[in-house]
Amino acid sequence: MSRNAVSLEAKNLTKTYHRGSEEIAAVRDVSLSINKGDFVSFIGPSGSGKTTLVHLLGCLDNPTSGELVLGGRQIFSGNGKQLSERTLTGIRRDVFGYIFQNFYLIPTLTVIENVMLPFTFYRKPGAGKDVMGLLKLLGIDHRRDHLPGRISGGEMQRVAIARSLVNSPEILFADEPTGNLDTKRSAEIVQILKDLSKDSGLTVIMVSHNLELASQADRQFEMRDGGISERL
């Protein structure tokens, strides 16, 4: 797999909302291309449309118009056709792993059960052969039988990362992953994401309002009023 293979390509992505009679374009005509193994960050003030854009890129939402190609597979073809939740889920579970600011671990399940939870619904062929190795890599192997309530915030996010990775996604999607963590833990989590993209060729898309952390990424996009510009 060459480092320069295109992982994600968006063309003229647009998402508009209606508030009363007013039409608001949260994302306006965004085109971008992300290569496999890139660690990309999106920054921008709130209301800039970065979250909406990232949801479109992460197939969590349908665009109003525009095209999206994932790993050579056309997801949105630009005809404005809305995909069903089922179809989107089918795409997502093959391509993406997600982590969020609120870690969303299931409080009744232990660390290892949370990490293995995706297999309850779907197991990508060949995925999840070395879950313990993954826990070790993320430094949470000694917590495997703890309930989420018993571990620290940094550890919880590591569990969430492990959970997002068990099904071997191509793209890891991190929405404000450090929003609930202190500076030291935040730096650690970003370092993990960085290492993952470098060492395993995982594409990482991170949304953050923290400029310092965002600057750790290989490429940085800045959103403003629904438009996008790359910081070079």
Binding site: E85, T89, R93, Y104, T120, F121, Y122
Partner: peptide, 16 residues
């Protein structure tokens, strides 16, 4: 609500 939403991001179909 959120937990269930998250299950869907980790691969759960509506049927699941």
């Amino acid at each position: 609500f959120q937990e269930i939403g998250i299950m869907k991001t980790i691969g759960a179909m509506p049927g699941d």
